[in-house]
Design a protein around this nucleic acid. Structure first.
Length: 465
RNA sequence: GGCGCUAUAGCCAAGUGGUAAGGCGUGGGUCUGCAACACCCUGAUCCCCAGUUCAAAUCUGGGUGGCGCCUCCA
Protein backbone atom coordinates (compact mmCIF):
# COMPACT_ATOMS: atom_id res chain seq x y z
CA UNK A 1 0.00 0.00 0.00
CA UNK A 2 1.17 3.47 -0.84
CA UNK A 3 0.72 6.35 1.58
CA UNK A 4 1.43 10.01 0.96
CA UNK A 5 3.88 10.95 3.66
CA UNK A 6 3.90 14.63 4.60
CA UNK A 7 7.40 14.22 5.93
CA UNK A 8 8.88 13.24 2.57
CA UNK A 9 6.19 14.95 0.49
CA UNK A 10 5.64 11.90 -1.65
CA UNK A 11 3.76 8.65 -1.86
CA UNK A 12 5.72 5.84 -0.28
CA UNK A 13 5.25 2.12 0.12
CA UNK A 14 4.02 1.56 3.60
CA UNK A 15 6.28 -0.62 5.73
CA UNK A 16 5.31 -1.12 9.35
CA UNK A 17 7.86 -1.33 12.14
CA UNK A 18 6.64 -4.79 13.04
CA UNK A 19 5.57 -7.09 10.23
CA UNK A 20 1.80 -7.35 10.05
CA UNK A 21 1.14 -4.75 12.72
CA UNK A 22 0.33 -1.07 12.46
CA UNK A 23 0.27 1.54 15.18
CA UNK A 24 -1.57 4.76 14.40
CA UNK A 25 -1.87 7.89 16.48
CA UNK A 26 -4.60 10.35 15.52
CA UNK A 27 -4.86 13.78 17.07
CA UNK A 28 -8.25 13.86 18.70
CA UNK A 29 -10.57 16.69 19.65
CA UNK A 30 -10.11 19.40 22.20
CA UNK A 31 -13.32 18.88 24.06
CA UNK A 32 -14.81 22.31 24.56
CA UNK A 33 -17.69 22.16 22.11
CA UNK A 34 -19.69 19.89 19.82
CA UNK A 35 -17.72 18.81 16.78
CA UNK A 36 -18.35 20.44 13.42
CA UNK A 37 -18.24 18.62 10.12
CA UNK A 38 -14.68 19.78 9.57
CA UNK A 39 -13.78 17.80 12.68
CA UNK A 40 -15.78 14.88 11.34
CA UNK A 41 -13.56 14.51 8.29
CA UNK A 42 -10.43 13.06 9.90
CA UNK A 43 -12.59 10.96 12.19
CA UNK A 44 -14.33 9.32 9.24
CA UNK A 45 -11.36 9.18 6.92
CA UNK A 46 -8.98 7.60 9.38
CA UNK A 47 -11.67 5.17 10.47
CA UNK A 48 -11.84 4.01 6.86
CA UNK A 49 -8.06 3.78 6.91
CA UNK A 50 -8.20 1.58 9.98
CA UNK A 51 -10.85 -0.68 8.46
CA UNK A 52 -8.85 -0.98 5.27
CA UNK A 53 -5.66 -1.89 7.12
CA UNK A 54 -7.59 -4.63 8.87
CA UNK A 55 -9.09 -5.76 5.59
CA UNK A 56 -5.51 -6.07 4.33
CA UNK A 57 -4.76 -8.32 7.27
CA UNK A 58 -2.88 -5.95 9.54
CA UNK A 59 -3.30 -6.06 13.25
CA UNK A 60 -4.00 -2.45 14.13
CA UNK A 61 -3.54 -0.37 17.22
CA UNK A 62 -5.31 2.96 17.07
CA UNK A 63 -4.74 5.73 19.55
CA UNK A 64 -6.85 8.85 19.62
CA UNK A 65 -6.41 11.29 22.44
CA UNK A 66 -8.81 13.66 24.09
CA UNK A 67 -7.34 17.05 24.86
CA UNK A 68 -9.23 17.67 28.08
CA UNK A 69 -6.87 20.27 29.50
CA UNK A 70 -6.83 23.48 27.52
CA UNK A 71 -7.49 27.19 27.89
CA UNK A 72 -10.51 26.96 25.65
CA UNK A 73 -12.07 24.43 27.96
CA UNK A 74 -11.48 26.75 30.88
CA UNK A 75 -13.11 29.59 28.97
CA UNK A 76 -16.06 27.42 28.02
CA UNK A 77 -16.43 26.42 31.66
CA UNK A 78 -16.80 30.07 32.61
CA UNK A 79 -19.34 30.51 29.86
CA UNK A 80 -21.39 27.52 30.96
CA UNK A 81 -20.87 28.33 34.62
CA UNK A 82 -19.22 24.99 35.16
CA UNK A 83 -15.77 23.53 35.83
CA UNK A 84 -13.18 22.55 33.21
CA UNK A 85 -13.46 18.93 34.32
CA UNK A 86 -17.20 18.85 33.84
CA UNK A 87 -17.01 20.61 30.49
CA UNK A 88 -14.42 18.14 29.24
CA UNK A 89 -16.50 15.19 30.36
CA UNK A 90 -19.61 16.62 28.79
CA UNK A 91 -18.03 17.17 25.40
CA UNK A 92 -16.23 13.84 25.40
CA UNK A 93 -19.62 12.32 25.87
CA UNK A 94 -21.12 14.40 23.08
CA UNK A 95 -18.19 13.60 20.83
CA UNK A 96 -18.78 9.91 21.34
CA UNK A 97 -22.41 10.28 20.32
CA UNK A 98 -21.40 11.91 17.05
CA UNK A 99 -18.64 9.37 16.42
CA UNK A 100 -21.06 6.54 16.98
CA UNK A 101 -23.55 8.14 14.61
CA UNK A 102 -20.82 8.30 11.99
CA UNK A 103 -20.12 4.58 12.51
CA UNK A 104 -16.62 5.33 13.73
CA UNK A 105 -15.19 2.62 15.92
CA UNK A 106 -13.68 3.86 19.18
CA UNK A 107 -9.89 3.87 19.22
CA UNK A 108 -8.17 1.08 21.12
CA UNK A 109 -6.80 3.61 23.57
CA UNK A 110 -8.26 7.06 24.16
CA UNK A 111 -5.78 8.78 26.45
CA UNK A 112 -6.75 11.95 28.27
CA UNK A 113 -4.24 14.67 29.00
CA UNK A 114 -5.48 14.99 32.58
CA UNK A 115 -4.42 11.42 33.30
CA UNK A 116 -0.96 11.81 31.75
CA UNK A 117 0.50 14.62 33.84
CA UNK A 118 3.31 12.45 35.18
CA UNK A 119 4.41 11.38 31.73
CA UNK A 120 4.15 14.93 30.44
CA UNK A 121 6.23 16.29 33.30
CA UNK A 122 8.79 13.51 32.86
CA UNK A 123 9.24 14.34 29.22
CA UNK A 124 9.65 18.03 29.96
CA UNK A 125 12.24 17.18 32.61
CA UNK A 126 14.16 15.12 30.09
CA UNK A 127 14.09 17.99 27.61
CA UNK A 128 15.37 20.41 30.24
CA UNK A 129 18.14 18.00 31.23
CA UNK A 130 19.21 17.58 27.64
CA UNK A 131 19.27 21.31 27.09
CA UNK A 132 16.30 21.40 24.72
CA UNK A 133 14.20 23.36 27.16
CA UNK A 134 14.61 26.09 29.75
CA UNK A 135 12.62 27.51 32.58
CA UNK A 136 11.64 31.16 32.96
CA UNK A 137 9.49 32.31 35.86
CA UNK A 138 7.67 29.01 36.22
CA UNK A 139 7.19 28.55 32.49
CA UNK A 140 9.20 26.05 30.48
CA UNK A 141 9.98 26.69 26.83
CA UNK A 142 11.35 24.53 24.07
CA UNK A 143 14.59 25.78 22.52
CA UNK A 144 13.77 25.40 18.82
CA UNK A 145 17.21 26.51 17.62
CA UNK A 146 18.71 23.58 19.45
CA UNK A 147 16.77 20.97 17.48
CA UNK A 148 18.42 20.51 14.13
CA UNK A 149 15.46 19.08 12.28
CA UNK A 150 13.07 21.83 13.24
CA UNK A 151 10.91 22.60 10.20
CA UNK A 152 11.44 19.30 8.44
CA UNK A 153 7.78 18.34 8.57
CA UNK A 154 6.31 21.67 7.52
CA UNK A 155 9.17 22.33 5.08
CA UNK A 156 10.01 25.68 6.54
CA UNK A 157 13.28 27.01 7.78
CA UNK A 158 13.45 28.77 11.11
CA UNK A 159 14.26 32.02 9.38
CA UNK A 160 11.27 31.70 7.06
CA UNK A 161 9.06 31.12 10.03
CA UNK A 162 10.37 34.14 11.82
CA UNK A 163 9.93 36.42 8.84
CA UNK A 164 6.26 35.57 8.75
CA UNK A 165 5.72 35.51 12.48
CA UNK A 166 3.57 38.05 14.26
CA UNK A 167 5.28 40.51 16.50
CA UNK A 168 6.00 39.10 19.89
CA UNK A 169 4.74 41.10 22.81
CA UNK A 170 6.77 41.15 26.06
CA UNK A 171 8.65 38.03 25.18
CA UNK A 172 10.49 36.31 27.96
CA UNK A 173 11.58 33.63 25.53
CA UNK A 174 15.08 33.27 24.14
CA UNK A 175 13.70 33.08 20.62
CA UNK A 176 10.31 34.04 19.19
CA UNK A 177 9.85 30.52 17.87
CA UNK A 178 10.36 28.84 21.22
CA UNK A 179 7.08 27.37 22.39
CA UNK A 180 5.67 26.57 25.80
CA UNK A 181 5.98 23.13 27.32
CA UNK A 182 4.66 24.22 30.69
CA UNK A 183 2.83 27.37 31.70
CA UNK A 184 2.54 28.57 35.25
CA UNK A 185 -0.93 28.99 36.66
CA UNK A 186 -2.34 30.65 39.74
CA UNK A 187 -3.60 28.59 42.65
CA UNK A 188 -7.17 29.61 41.86
CA UNK A 189 -6.99 28.22 38.32
CA UNK A 190 -6.92 24.64 37.12
CA UNK A 191 -3.36 23.49 37.76
CA UNK A 192 -1.01 20.62 38.52
CA UNK A 193 2.14 20.60 40.62
CA UNK A 194 5.45 20.36 38.82
CA UNK A 195 9.17 20.91 39.46
CA UNK A 196 8.59 24.43 38.07
CA UNK A 197 5.64 25.20 40.30
CA UNK A 198 1.90 25.04 39.70
CA UNK A 199 0.84 25.12 36.11
CA UNK A 200 -0.55 23.40 33.05
CA UNK A 201 1.12 21.65 30.13
CA UNK A 202 1.70 23.52 26.90
CA UNK A 203 -0.21 22.90 23.71
CA UNK A 204 1.97 20.27 22.09
CA UNK A 205 3.74 18.23 24.73
CA UNK A 206 0.67 16.20 25.60
CA UNK A 207 0.57 14.36 22.29
CA UNK A 208 4.26 13.56 22.47
CA UNK A 209 3.88 12.18 25.97
CA UNK A 210 0.73 10.18 25.29
CA UNK A 211 1.99 8.78 22.01
CA UNK A 212 5.17 7.61 23.69
CA UNK A 213 3.33 6.04 26.57
CA UNK A 214 0.84 4.22 24.34
CA UNK A 215 3.10 3.30 21.44
CA UNK A 216 6.75 3.57 22.41
CA UNK A 217 9.37 5.89 21.01
CA UNK A 218 8.54 5.41 17.35
CA UNK A 219 5.09 5.07 15.86
CA UNK A 220 4.15 3.88 12.40
CA UNK A 221 1.74 6.58 11.34
CA UNK A 222 0.63 9.85 12.82
CA UNK A 223 -2.57 11.38 11.44
CA UNK A 224 -4.42 14.64 11.71
CA UNK A 225 -5.77 17.65 9.87
CA UNK A 226 -3.57 19.64 7.55
CA UNK A 227 -3.66 22.65 9.81
CA UNK A 228 -1.87 20.67 12.50
CA UNK A 229 1.30 20.29 10.45
CA UNK A 230 2.54 23.55 11.82
CA UNK A 231 3.05 24.16 14.61
CA UNK A 232 1.47 21.20 16.40
CA UNK A 233 3.06 18.27 14.63
CA UNK A 234 6.31 20.05 13.95
CA UNK A 235 6.59 20.65 17.67
CA UNK A 236 5.69 17.08 18.51
CA UNK A 237 8.56 15.92 16.32
CA UNK A 238 10.92 18.33 18.04
CA UNK A 239 9.85 17.26 21.52
CA UNK A 240 9.75 13.53 20.95
CA UNK A 241 12.88 13.22 18.87
CA UNK A 242 14.90 15.48 21.14
CA UNK A 243 13.87 13.50 24.20
CA UNK A 244 14.23 9.97 22.81
CA UNK A 245 16.83 10.48 20.10
CA UNK A 246 14.69 8.35 17.79
CA UNK A 247 12.36 8.99 14.87
CA UNK A 248 8.97 9.97 16.26
CA UNK A 249 6.73 8.80 13.42
CA UNK A 250 7.66 7.07 10.19
CA UNK A 251 4.65 8.34 8.26
CA UNK A 252 2.48 11.43 8.55
CA UNK A 253 -0.96 11.59 6.99
CA UNK A 254 -2.91 14.84 6.85
CA UNK A 255 -6.44 15.35 5.65
CA UNK A 256 -7.59 18.41 3.71
CA UNK A 257 -10.08 20.90 5.03
CA UNK A 258 -13.74 21.43 4.55
CA UNK A 259 -14.61 24.89 3.36
CA UNK A 260 -17.73 26.98 3.54
CA UNK A 261 -18.02 29.37 0.61
CA UNK A 262 -14.47 28.33 -0.23
CA UNK A 263 -13.18 29.48 3.14
CA UNK A 264 -11.87 27.17 5.77
CA UNK A 265 -14.44 26.16 8.32
CA UNK A 266 -13.32 26.75 11.87
CA UNK A 267 -14.76 27.24 15.27
CA UNK A 268 -12.80 30.42 15.80
CA UNK A 269 -13.98 31.90 12.50
CA UNK A 270 -17.53 30.96 13.36
CA UNK A 271 -18.35 29.66 9.86
CA UNK A 272 -19.11 26.08 10.73
CA UNK A 273 -21.89 23.52 10.79
CA UNK A 274 -22.16 21.19 13.72
CA UNK A 275 -22.05 17.54 12.80
CA UNK A 276 -25.23 16.83 14.70
CA UNK A 277 -27.13 19.62 12.99
CA UNK A 278 -26.18 18.37 9.55
CA UNK A 279 -26.97 14.83 10.70
CA UNK A 280 -30.43 15.86 11.75
CA UNK A 281 -31.16 17.01 8.24
CA UNK A 282 -29.28 14.48 6.12
CA UNK A 283 -28.44 11.64 8.48
CA UNK A 284 -25.04 10.82 9.91
CA UNK A 285 -24.33 8.32 7.19
CA UNK A 286 -24.65 10.97 4.50
CA UNK A 287 -21.87 12.87 6.26
CA UNK A 288 -19.72 9.78 6.28
CA UNK A 289 -20.41 9.28 2.59
CA UNK A 290 -19.48 12.91 1.96
CA UNK A 291 -16.06 12.29 3.50
CA UNK A 292 -15.50 9.19 1.42
CA UNK A 293 -16.60 10.53 -1.96
CA UNK A 294 -13.49 12.69 -2.26
CA UNK A 295 -9.86 11.87 -1.69
CA UNK A 296 -8.93 12.68 1.90
CA UNK A 297 -6.15 15.12 1.03
CA UNK A 298 -8.25 17.28 -1.30
CA UNK A 299 -9.99 20.36 -0.01
CA UNK A 300 -13.77 20.07 -0.06
CA UNK A 301 -16.37 22.78 -0.32
CA UNK A 302 -19.48 22.16 1.70
CA UNK A 303 -22.82 22.90 0.05
CA UNK A 304 -26.38 21.73 0.55
CA UNK A 305 -26.45 20.56 -3.06
CA UNK A 306 -23.45 18.32 -2.40
CA UNK A 307 -25.09 16.78 0.65
CA UNK A 308 -28.26 16.14 -1.35
CA UNK A 309 -26.36 14.29 -4.03
CA UNK A 310 -24.49 12.26 -1.41
CA UNK A 311 -27.73 11.19 0.16
CA UNK A 312 -29.12 10.08 -3.19
CA UNK A 313 -25.94 8.19 -4.05
CA UNK A 314 -26.07 6.39 -0.76
CA UNK A 315 -29.67 5.40 -1.41
CA UNK A 316 -28.59 3.80 -4.64
CA UNK A 317 -26.31 1.51 -2.67
CA UNK A 318 -29.04 0.71 -0.17
CA UNK A 319 -31.47 -0.08 -2.97
CA UNK A 320 -28.98 -2.41 -4.57
CA UNK A 321 -28.41 -4.31 -1.34
CA UNK A 322 -32.08 -4.64 -0.52
CA UNK A 323 -32.98 -5.75 -4.01
CA UNK A 324 -30.24 -8.32 -3.72
CA UNK A 325 -31.68 -9.71 -0.49
CA UNK A 326 -35.08 -10.23 -2.06
CA UNK A 327 -33.55 -11.78 -5.14
CA UNK A 328 -31.61 -14.19 -2.95
CA UNK A 329 -34.72 -15.38 -1.18
CA UNK A 330 -36.47 -15.91 -4.51
CA UNK A 331 -33.56 -17.52 -6.36
CA UNK A 332 -32.96 -21.21 -7.02
CA UNK A 333 -29.81 -23.07 -6.16
CA UNK A 334 -27.23 -23.45 -8.87
CA UNK A 335 -23.76 -22.60 -10.08
CA UNK A 336 -21.86 -19.36 -10.13
CA UNK A 337 -21.06 -18.60 -13.74
CA UNK A 338 -17.46 -18.05 -14.78
CA UNK A 339 -18.25 -14.59 -16.01
CA UNK A 340 -19.76 -13.68 -12.64
CA UNK A 341 -16.68 -14.98 -10.88
CA UNK A 342 -14.58 -12.84 -13.16
CA UNK A 343 -16.76 -9.81 -12.52
CA UNK A 344 -16.50 -10.17 -8.76
CA UNK A 345 -12.76 -10.71 -8.92
CA UNK A 346 -12.36 -7.68 -11.14
CA UNK A 347 -14.33 -5.37 -8.87
CA UNK A 348 -12.50 -6.57 -5.82
CA UNK A 349 -9.07 -5.97 -7.27
CA UNK A 350 -10.23 -2.66 -8.71
CA UNK A 351 -11.27 -1.63 -5.22
CA UNK A 352 -8.01 -2.78 -3.67
CA UNK A 353 -5.93 -1.02 -6.30
CA UNK A 354 -7.71 2.23 -5.54
CA UNK A 355 -7.45 1.95 -1.80
CA UNK A 356 -3.82 0.87 -2.00
CA UNK A 357 -3.12 4.12 -3.75
CA UNK A 358 -3.02 6.44 -0.76
CA UNK A 359 -6.52 5.48 0.36
CA UNK A 360 -8.28 6.66 -2.77
CA UNK A 361 -11.82 6.19 -1.51
CA UNK A 362 -13.29 8.25 -4.32
CA UNK A 363 -11.87 5.82 -6.84
CA UNK A 364 -12.75 2.88 -4.62
CA UNK A 365 -16.37 3.93 -4.73
CA UNK A 366 -16.28 3.53 -8.49
CA UNK A 367 -15.73 -0.19 -8.05
CA UNK A 368 -18.60 -0.33 -5.59
CA UNK A 369 -20.97 1.48 -7.94
CA UNK A 370 -20.02 -0.63 -10.91
CA UNK A 371 -20.52 -3.74 -8.82
CA UNK A 372 -23.90 -2.34 -7.77
CA UNK A 373 -24.99 -1.96 -11.36
CA UNK A 374 -23.89 -5.50 -12.15
CA UNK A 375 -25.64 -6.86 -9.09
CA UNK A 376 -28.83 -4.99 -9.96
CA UNK A 377 -28.81 -6.68 -13.31
CA UNK A 378 -28.22 -10.08 -11.72
CA UNK A 379 -31.01 -9.51 -9.20
CA UNK A 380 -33.43 -8.87 -12.02
CA UNK A 381 -32.46 -12.08 -13.83
CA UNK A 382 -34.42 -15.08 -12.57
CA UNK A 383 -31.92 -17.51 -14.07
CA UNK A 384 -29.15 -16.32 -11.75
CA UNK A 385 -28.48 -18.78 -8.94
CA UNK A 386 -28.81 -18.14 -5.25
CA UNK A 387 -25.13 -18.99 -4.80
CA UNK A 388 -24.10 -16.35 -7.27
CA UNK A 389 -26.26 -13.67 -5.69
CA UNK A 390 -24.96 -14.60 -2.28
CA UNK A 391 -21.37 -14.40 -3.45
CA UNK A 392 -22.16 -10.97 -4.87
CA UNK A 393 -23.72 -9.91 -1.59
CA UNK A 394 -20.69 -11.05 0.37
CA UNK A 395 -18.40 -8.98 -1.83
CA UNK A 396 -20.71 -5.99 -1.75
CA UNK A 397 -20.90 -6.15 2.05
CA UNK A 398 -17.15 -6.51 2.30
CA UNK A 399 -16.43 -3.44 0.22
CA UNK A 400 -19.11 -1.25 1.75
CA UNK A 401 -18.00 -2.54 5.14
CA UNK A 402 -14.44 -1.38 4.57
CA UNK A 403 -15.84 2.05 3.81
CA UNK A 404 -18.05 1.77 6.86
CA UNK A 405 -21.22 2.36 4.86
CA UNK A 406 -24.67 0.79 4.90
CA UNK A 407 -24.83 0.48 8.65
CA UNK A 408 -28.43 1.58 8.90
CA UNK A 409 -30.20 -1.09 6.95
CA UNK A 410 -33.81 -1.55 7.94
CA UNK A 411 -34.20 -4.89 9.65
CA UNK A 412 -37.49 -6.52 8.85
CA UNK A 413 -38.12 -7.35 12.50
CA UNK A 414 -37.70 -3.69 13.41
CA UNK A 415 -40.73 -2.79 11.37
CA UNK A 416 -43.71 -2.17 13.64
CA UNK A 417 -46.68 -4.51 13.37
CA UNK A 418 -48.85 -1.53 12.54
CA UNK A 419 -46.83 -0.85 9.42
CA UNK A 420 -46.75 -4.50 8.43
CA UNK A 421 -50.54 -4.66 8.64
CA UNK A 422 -50.91 -1.62 6.42
CA UNK A 423 -48.52 -3.13 3.91
CA UNK A 424 -50.60 -6.31 3.80
CA UNK A 425 -53.73 -4.21 3.27
CA UNK A 426 -52.03 -2.44 0.39
CA UNK A 427 -51.07 -5.74 -1.17
CA UNK A 428 -54.69 -6.89 -0.95
CA UNK A 429 -56.00 -3.62 -2.35
CA UNK A 430 -53.66 -3.86 -5.32
CA UNK A 431 -54.72 -7.40 -5.96
CA UNK A 432 -58.30 -6.21 -5.99
CA UNK A 433 -57.27 -3.41 -8.34
CA UNK A 434 -58.51 -0.86 -5.85
CA UNK A 435 -55.68 1.56 -6.61
CA UNK A 436 -57.26 4.53 -4.90
CA UNK A 437 -57.30 2.63 -1.62
CA UNK A 438 -53.80 1.30 -2.25
CA UNK A 439 -52.48 4.82 -2.68
CA UNK A 440 -54.22 6.03 0.46
CA UNK A 441 -52.59 3.24 2.40
CA UNK A 442 -49.21 4.15 0.95
CA UNK A 443 -49.69 7.68 2.29
CA UNK A 444 -50.59 6.29 5.69
CA UNK A 445 -47.44 4.20 5.73
CA UNK A 446 -45.40 7.24 4.75
CA UNK A 447 -46.93 9.18 7.63
CA UNK A 448 -45.55 6.52 9.98
CA UNK A 449 -42.07 7.05 8.61
CA UNK A 450 -41.83 4.13 6.20
CA UNK A 451 -41.90 3.81 2.46
CA UNK A 452 -43.01 0.91 0.32
CA UNK A 453 -41.93 0.02 -3.17
CA UNK A 454 -43.27 -2.64 -5.46
CA UNK A 455 -40.51 -4.83 -6.75
CA UNK A 456 -40.25 -7.93 -8.85
CA UNK A 457 -39.94 -10.07 -5.76
CA UNK A 458 -42.54 -8.33 -3.63
CA UNK A 459 -43.07 -5.33 -1.43
CA UNK A 460 -40.06 -3.58 0.03
CA UNK A 461 -40.41 -1.63 3.24
CA UNK A 462 -37.81 0.87 4.31
CA UNK A 463 -37.56 3.40 7.07
CA UNK A 464 -37.45 6.95 5.79
CA UNK A 465 -35.09 9.08 7.75
C1' G B 1 7.10 38.20 2.17
C1' G B 2 8.21 32.62 3.00
C1' C B 3 6.38 27.53 2.40
C1' G B 4 2.74 24.42 0.22
C1' C B 5 -1.78 22.70 -2.19
C1' U B 6 -5.16 23.16 -6.23
C1' A B 7 -7.69 24.23 -11.41
C1' U B 8 -11.24 17.92 -15.29
C1' A B 9 -18.91 18.18 -17.91
C1' G B 10 -24.68 21.98 -14.71
C1' C B 11 -22.76 19.98 -9.62
C1' C B 12 -19.40 16.40 -7.01
C1' A B 13 -15.14 13.64 -8.40
C1' A B 14 -11.10 9.73 -10.12
C1' G B 15 -7.38 9.59 -13.57
C1' U B 16 -0.11 5.68 -13.20
C1' G B 17 2.18 9.78 -21.47
C1' G B 18 -1.25 6.17 -25.52
C1' U B 19 -6.96 9.86 -27.87
C1' A B 20 -11.33 11.24 -20.52
C1' A B 21 -13.86 6.23 -14.38
C1' G B 22 -17.87 6.76 -11.15
C1' G B 23 -21.95 9.45 -8.60
C1' C B 24 -25.78 13.37 -8.63
C1' G B 25 -28.64 16.25 -11.97
C1' U B 26 -30.80 16.92 -17.16
C1' G B 27 -33.23 14.84 -21.54
C1' G B 28 -35.09 10.31 -24.01
C1' G B 29 -36.55 5.09 -23.67
C1' U B 30 -37.82 0.01 -21.28
C1' C B 31 -40.33 -1.91 -16.99
C1' U B 32 -44.73 -0.44 -13.89
C1' G B 33 -52.09 0.49 -12.26
C1' C B 34 -49.49 5.15 -10.70
C1' A B 35 -45.10 6.26 -8.18
C1' A B 36 -40.48 4.60 -6.67
C1' C B 37 -36.51 1.21 -7.73
C1' A B 38 -33.82 -0.86 -11.71
C1' C B 39 -31.89 -1.22 -16.69
C1' C B 40 -30.48 1.11 -21.64
C1' C B 41 -29.28 5.67 -24.25
C1' U B 42 -27.82 11.00 -23.46
C1' G B 43 -22.87 14.97 -21.89
C1' A B 44 -15.85 17.49 -21.67
C1' U B 45 -11.24 20.37 -27.78
C1' C B 46 -9.32 18.32 -19.14
C1' C B 47 -7.85 27.32 -16.81
C1' C B 48 -4.44 29.93 -20.64
C1' C B 49 0.28 30.16 -23.56
C1' A B 50 4.66 27.88 -25.07
C1' G B 51 7.92 23.50 -25.00
C1' U B 52 9.50 18.06 -24.84
C1' U B 53 7.37 13.61 -27.35
C1' C B 54 5.23 9.45 -32.62
C1' A B 55 1.70 10.48 -28.53
C1' A B 56 0.31 15.22 -22.84
C1' A B 57 -5.42 16.04 -18.52
C1' U B 58 -0.91 13.57 -17.22
C1' C B 59 6.10 15.85 -18.09
C1' U B 60 8.84 21.00 -18.36
C1' G B 61 8.72 26.45 -18.36
C1' G B 62 5.74 30.83 -18.00
C1' G B 63 1.04 33.06 -16.91
C1' U B 64 -3.97 33.52 -14.50
C1' G B 65 -7.60 32.10 -10.80
C1' G B 66 -8.82 29.61 -5.99
C1' C B 67 -7.20 27.79 -1.16
C1' G B 68 -4.17 26.61 3.10
C1' C B 69 -0.07 27.17 6.73
C1' C B 70 3.38 30.78 8.81
C1' U B 71 -1.42 32.60 15.52
C1' C B 72 -5.60 28.40 18.83
C1' C B 73 -7.94 25.39 14.95
C1' A B 74 -9.48 18.70 11.94
Amino acid sequence: MKIYNTLTAQKEDFKPINEGKVGVYVCGPTVYNYIHIGNARPICVFDVFRRYLEFKGYETKFIQNYTDVNDKIIKQAEKENSTPEEIALKYINEYEKDAKGLNVRPADIQPKVSLYMNQIIDMIKTLVEKGFAYEVNGDVYYRTRKFEGYGKLSKQSLDDLISGARVEVNSIKEDPLDFALWKSAGADEQHWDSPWGKGRPGWHIECSAMAKDCMGDTIDIHCGGKDLVFPHHENEVAQSEASTGKTFSNYWMHNGHINIDNKKMSKSAGNFFLTRDVAEKYGYETIRYLMIQAHYRMPMNYTAELLDSCKTSLERLYNCRETLDRAISAAKNGEITDSAKETFEKRKSQFIDSMDDDLNTADGLTAVFELARELNTMSADSTVSKEQLEAGAVLFDTLTGVLGLLYNRTEQDEIPAEVKELVQKRIDARKAKDFALADTIRDQIAALGYSVKETRQGMEITKTN
